[in-house]
Design a protein around this nucleic acid. Structure first.
Lengths: 203, 203
DNA sequence: CTGGAAAGACGAGACGTCTCGCTTTGGTAG
DNA sequence: CTACCAAAGCGAGACGTCTCGTCTTTCCAG
């Protein structure tokens, strides 16, 4: 009954090699042409070793991305969402960093592949959202909560909606490539989200 | 020399059957498992008839979606983007209709498949954006242009950015399934995009 | 000596091409 | 106007190829 392999005997060396190879390969050939055989070959690993521990290449890539996100956090000496008291400046700072990541092929390829795969495979999408996305969203929401407490936002502001007003348009441009992602874009986005576009003086 | 088949002799019956079958099948098995052989079988058509007129399954699905969008327009007696003079009401009306489409399995499956495929295949994504998305965006932009001319928006409003502030968050929720899509959601979105979230009275 | 790991053989199934008659089309001769 | 006929698309499906995920074998570590 090969249903439940013994995790205690699992080779950590193989596990890391597989995750690394998956990230490299998805950047080289894209998600569609990413193949478990190629991952196994690049990692110097038997195919069965991958099939034993992961149900699909999407699952491999999700684990690889989780590891990548963990690495990125530590290596950037991440100290949490900035809070200088200036909400607009803090948001612009973080969104600029996000734009830089989206423009970095190293992060773009796996993120794009996972997002696309998650859109069509609900189960994968749920794990992707829960494990990678939600923790990020919570950071934005916490910063907005502080701002609302400080009276910088309309008291009944829907914080989750506001987070989506920031990340939605950004993600939209990124996924659909309707226009290049720039710092100027996210700066303008923050200003308009906070200020709105209606002509208040004309009211 | 089979390079250039004679389009005037093309069977419209087969063409429609193929596009219909593609839409049905993508809903049943998803884009990844969608196969040209299956489309041909379902449509009661020879494989060669598909290969003769389309270069890939992506192209078939794109054409099918274009046809679907065209049908939806006519059957809804679409008369163009509403312009009652009340910008907020018009936007809410259109976004509610969009939510209804996203919640309709018939439209959801192909749209989701195409969006996801376009995200990882740049060439397909470009054609998807250009032929299906941009025409829609232009309608929003035109309505916003009218509003700006009428002094209902801040004079230097970036219209494209504003369109993305409306569709970005909606698309975000739709693709990532972070929360259900409701009319209440889009209504709130319109209000916040127009009005912003910053506490103006505290300035 | 138990069980994961590496290597690769294996069957399944989709690919894109092809061949085969059948049907449709559009031009031509009577 | 009708009858004929060549040309081209059509439905069906066989074909060789490729890649998938599983299965088998051998090896090695604890």
């Amino acid at each position: 009954m090969p249903k439940t392999p013994d995790a205690t005997r699992r080779s950590d060396r193989s596990r890391r090699a597989i995750l690394d190879a998956a990230l490299v390969l998805v950047g080289e050939v894209g998600y569609n042409k990413l193949t478990i055989e190629a991952i196994a070959a690049r990692a110097g690993v038997g195919k069965q070793t991958i099939y034993r521990w992961w149900p699909s290449k999407a699952a491999v890539l999700l684990d690889a991305s989780l590891a990548l996100a963990g690495d990125a956090e530590t290596e950037a000496e991440w100290t949490g969402f900035p809070d200088t008291g200036d909400l607009a400046a803090d948001l612009k700072h973080v969104l600029r960093a996000t734009v830089d990541e989206f423009n970095d092929e190293k992060y773009d390829a796996p993120a794009r592949a996972l997002t696309a795969a998650g859109a069509t495979e609900p189960e994968l999408g749920a794990r992707f959202t829960e494990q990678l996305l939600e923790p990020q969203l919570a950071l934005y929401e916490a910063r907005l909560h502080t701002a609302r407490e400080a009276g910088q936002l309309v008291p009944d502001t829907d914080l989750r909606l506001t987070v989506e007003m920031l990340l939605g348009p950004l993600t939209y441009r990124w996924l659909l490539r309707t226009a290049p992602l720039t710092h100027a874009y996210t700066d303008a986005l923050v200003d308009r989200v906070l200020g709105g576009v209606a002509n208040v003086t004309a009211r």
